[in-house]
């Protein structure tokens, strides 16, 4: 886990709220920008608008 300050964006797609919560908290603590999607459809949509790096 490398800590980057330059604000890499991560899109988390998972239907399990607990996993999402875990990832969100942990990744945000590592200073990533987090976006969430709970379905595949939503994930594709968000990926096109928000472009994760």
């Amino acid at each position: 886990m490398t800590i980057t300050e330059n604000g890499a964006r991560i899109l988390v797609i998972d239907d399990e709220p607990q996993i999402q919560k875990l990832l969100k908290v942990t990744l945000q603590a590592h200073h990533f920008e987090i976006h969430e999607a709970t379905t595949g459809e939503d994930g594709v949509l968000q990926a096109s608008s928000f472009i994760p790096i």
């Binding site: 886990m1 399990e16 607990q18 996993i19 919560k21 875990l22 990832l23 908290v25 942990t26 603590a29 590592h30």
Partner: peptide
């Protein structure tokens, strides 16, 4: 997986 992930996160970071 959530339990292990969370605990690992808490310990390491």
């Amino acid at each position: 997986a959530t339990i292990i992930g969370s605990v690992t996160g808490l310990i390491e970071g």
